[in-house]
């Protein structure tokens, strides 16, 4: 698993629950170290062990934890750079949804060994979409649930999301756009980089 993904999990746990609990998790997972390097690659099993230990530590289901991770990635100031990169996807929430098809390509353009599952957006009828996350990263759909929810807040849109389960390894998310301009949203200026 790419270090960026492991590092994202570490950042989420440290900034949300504190470094003590992160150390508990790495010890329970038997990592033998407590800091992931963003630009190195690790065995896939390590990530799985960490997530298992995290669910035990937090006494929560993996799906909830992963959804919170997705929300964290968009809304926490510590990872503002990522939120900005996602906002490059488009002017409106619907533009953003359509940009998800090319998200894995964009990710690879930035970090060429970062492989994310392919995604496909379908508009079922106006305001109603389904997002299919292809197999490759089990639970990725739950992370995307959190990202989609937090990005809706970012754009000021009101959406209803439902994880429609996995079909043959692919996860499907049902998206209902209730109101595009529901709230103010957060500002996004192209030319102002996150520190």
């Amino acid at each position: 698993m790419h270090g960026l993904i492991n590092r994202a999990i570490q950042s989420f746990v440290c900034n949300t629950y504190g470094e003590d609990r992160w150390r508990n998790v790495t010890e329970a997972a038997g990592l033998g170290f407590s800091d992931f390097e963003a630009m190195l690659t690790y065995e896939d099993d390590l990530t799985d062990d960490v997530l298992n230990a995290l669910c035990v530590e937090l006494r929560r289901d993996r799906s909830e934890v992963l959804e919170d991770l997705g929300t964290y990635l968009v809304s926490h100031p510590a990872v503002e750079a990522l939120r900005r990169l996602l906002r490059f996807g488009g002017e409106t929430y619907v533009d953003f949804l359509y940009s998800l098809d090319e998200l894995p390509g964009r990710a690879r353009l930035a970090v060429n060994d970062l492989v994310l599952p392919a995604m496909e957006l379908r508009e079922i009828r106006p305001g109603q979409f389904s997002l299919t996350c292809e197999p490759g990263l089990p639970g990725f759909g739950w992370v995307m649930m959190g990202i989609l929810r937090a990005m809706a807040d970012d754009y000021g849109s009101l959406v209803m999301l439902e994880h429609a389960g996995a079909r043959g390894g692919a996860e499907v998310i049902a998206i209902l756009l209730v109101e595009s301009a529901f709230a103010e949203g957060r500002a996004f200026e192209l030319g102002v980089r996150a520190g």
């Binding site: 750079a81 990169l85 490059f88 930035a110």
Partner: peptide, 21 residues
């Protein structure tokens, strides 16, 4: 242009992570 901006920013974020490493 927007893709170019995205790439410039993504690249600098990735470079920074590599630099830290």
């Amino acid at each position: 242009a927007i893709e170019l901006l995205y790439l410039a920013e993504a690249n600098s974020v990735a470079m920074e992570a590599s630099r830290q490493l």
